[in-house]
């Protein structure tokens, strides 16, 4: 096989990957290629730039996405159709994670084609997987603390979409959604954006408070609790939000309700202590 000017040392396994990428661009071979490639994407490091730069692949993946739109309202998405589009999303997740392709991926506004999936509310498994996998693409974007990503997301509806999933999604969806929110807040632009108006702060705070209330019922998920505490802690870095949190931080975070749940999580315990210290009068100003 020819590897151009020698960047590629082509093994039989790579030949297979290249053929599968080529197969994505044809209707007849796409479904099988999606399945095979989504399995291989972890083991082949340079898949993202190949997917992005090879002719016709991203348009083909966009076709996969828009072709299931008619099954969203009313919710008629089948398990098989969900699996197929989730395989396409897995490939986009790979493009979203790779530093070589992330910028172009944003510049072409591809994440916005996933928002209709995040906007669904059906609780059936095909829809849960669809939302979770779509959140995974956004999660991959924000994972590497990149300001370009955050400013892009802030120009879109991602915060309200995440907030709704944090309210009513499955536990795993909630975890990814709050992870995305936390990453947005950790960026200075993101924190300033959320704290810019009372309405925005209030919307975020209401959903976080609701999560605390849910965590008090039954066995609290340590994973979720960790993210909730960090979101509050980060909000408390903003002077106006800190002032507001003095009034509206839920009692269970103050009165030791979660001490048992956090007994093995030193970091989160420390975050909670810092949060309470930030909100106490002694450190005002």
């Amino acid at each position: 096989g020819g590897g151009g000017p020698g960047y590629f040392q082509v093994s039989a396994e790579e030949e297979k990957v290249f053929q599968l990428v080529l197969d994505l661009t044809s209707n007849q071979t796409r479904e099988g290629a999606l399945l095979e490639l989504s399995k291989k994407r972890e083991s082949y490091e340079d898949l993202a730039p190949i997917l992005w730069h090879a002719y016709g692949v991203i348009p083909a993946l966009l076709q996969e996405i828009t072709s299931v739109y008619p099954a969203l309202f009313p919710p008629t998405l089948t398990g098989q159709a969900s699996n197929r589009v989730c395989n396409a999303l897995a490939l986009l997740q790979c493009v979203a994670s790779h530093s070589e392709t992330r910028g172009a991926f944003l510049q072409a506004h591809i994440p916005l084609f996933l928002y209709p999936f995040l906007n669904t509310t059906s609780k059936t498994r095909p829809f849960e997987y669809l939302r979770l996998t779509s959140l995974g693409v956004v999660g991959a974007l924000v994972k590497n603390d990149n300001s370009e990503v955050i400013s892009f997301l802030l120009s879109t509806e991602i915060i309200p979409l995440c907030l709704r999933i944090m309210e009513s999604g499955s536990e795993l969806s909630k975890t990814v959604a709050i992870f995305i929110l936390q990453k947005i807040l950790l960026d200075d632009l993101g924190l300033a954006y959320v704290c810019q108006t009372y309405e925005r702060f209030y919307a975020v705070c209401t959903v976080l408070n609701g999560m605390v209330a849910q965590l008090c019922e039954g066995q609290p998920s340590g994973r979720l609790l960790k993210h909730v505490v960090r979101c509050y802690l980060r909000l408390s870095d903003n002077p106006r939000a800190r002032e507001a949190l003095r009034q509206c931080l839920p009692d269970p975070l103050r009165d030791g309700t979660f001490l048992i749940a956090l007994k093995d999580d030193v970091t989160t315990k420390r975050c909670l202590a810092t949060l309470l210290l930030n909100l106490s009068d002694q450190v005002q100003g």
């Binding site: 972890e42 989730c86 897995a90 996998t133 990814v176």
Partner: peptide, 21 residues
């Protein structure tokens, strides 16, 4: 009836939750 059919755990879902950990 297809709507509620059980589905295999998708590999990307698993890697995602591991990645978050």
């Amino acid at each position: 009836s297809q709507l509620s059919q059980p589905q295999e755990e998708l590999p990307q879902v698993l890697t995602l939750s591991q990645a978050l950990e």
